[in-house]
Design a protein around this nucleic acid. Structure first.
Lengths: 208, 208
DNA sequence: ATTGTATTATGACTTATAGTCAGTATATGA
DNA sequence: TCATATACTGACTATAAGTCATAATACAAT
């Protein structure tokens, strides 16, 4: 009987609907200034109902982080699918894709930065957190595969460890923008990000 | 009369004593699990007294961030004072100094990462926040001066903008470790950080 | 010494909100 | 029609940040 399937589908829909509401509220007023009653109101549910689907307020945030990572991943996948580029060009394109993500979805980007904070207030066993971690792994794996491709096609020097360097790149990308913003620099309109990307690619390149 | 001076000195001492207490409490139980009553208890004061010196709980955290930045700055200054190194070596040494900071003061490092979050809950006019921002500027300026030195002595390629690249480096350094930790990698015992630093220096170097 | 003023400290109180839970409503299946 | 499971409600509890009237103390001037 398909009832169980329909029910689980509907449950998933409710979940999404709640995350949609949370996203709207959090993006509008900021996480700390939003209450679970606000979210419940936006989702047209009572507060108690939220807790049928999510254990804590932080878990809702982790779901938003998850969406942010999915966007980044999609961008990277598009880059990775383009057969015309060599490995180094791919890394460069991934960097640009990340910048584009930041420019078109600044709120998602901010959510990404708050990950650490929300993870803390969200049990380690949370399946939403698990999912987020998996997406992060996928991003690292995708970057690593680009690096390996570059090492194979000769565009990237072959004395690096693809896995470790992928971690490095992903960490660097995440840290760049906060550093810029902290100093009041305009990330979108400037060539700051472009320069940073140049520096990274120059470090990876097999040629000078 | 020196009474006013003594009073302001004593006020500063109280402030420090309170930040000491807050640091102890926050580092022990974590910021979110600590209460202002805990801090007051550790400082042997009443909760109300804390608010004579600090406007919010977040402001206390910003003070701890400030201490963390001061440690980083001191490390960078030591590197900068060593006349035997060329600019590129200095950048490399600064990176190692940062790693050393992380390894010897992991809690301060975490405080650094939480900066963004606490800044939000702390009025923009807070003098403690101002001080923190100044320290950050000094770090960027110091890195920029190392880059300029390297461009002058020929160790660093001269087609970069020292100011912008300093921002990039400082942002990258901050983002590296979270990226590593997120993936469950051991930062201290591995050559991960060393590799990342190599990548950066290779990007900066005038030679291949 | 005494008195007035300013500073610092107290802790009970107010307010806000995350999370709970006993009870209600609704859907499903026998 | 009834029994059970699931989804939902909103009043309630617990906790903690921040406030404020009051008290204590230090100081300077008379």
């Amino acid at each position: 009987m398909g009832t169980a399937e329909r029910r689980s589908r509907e449950r998933k829909q409710r979940e999404e609907q709640i995350v949609n509401a949370a996203e709207k509220v959090f993006f509008e007023r900021g996480f700390d200034n939003s209450t679970m009653d606000d979210v419940a109101g936006a989702a047209e549910l009572s507060k108690g109902a939220l807790y049928t689907y999510f254990k804590t307020k932080n878990e809702l945030c982790i779901c938003i982080v998850s969406r942010a990572l999915a966007l980044v991943l999609t961008g990277f996948e598009k880059v990775s699918a383009d057969k015309r580029m060599n490995g180094l060009k791919m890394i460069q394109a991934a960097g640009r894709s990340f910048q584009h993500f930041y420019c078109t979805h600044p709120k998602y980007y901010c959510a990404l930065l708050s990950y650490r904070h929300h993870r803390g207030g969200c049990g380690a066993e949370s399946r939403f957190l698990q999912h987020t971690l998996e997406e992060n792994d996928q991003i690292n794996e995708l970057l690593a595969s680009m690096l390996r491709k570059g090492m194979a096609d000769g565009s990237i020097r072959d004395n690096i460890d693809a896995g470790k360097t992928a971690l490095t790149l992903w960490g660097e990308l995440g840290g760049l923008i906060p550093g810029f913003i902290l100093n009041g620099e305009d990330v979108a309109g400037q060539d700051l990000f472009e320069q940073a990307l140049d520096l990274i690619c120059c470090g990876l390149s097999s040629k000078k």
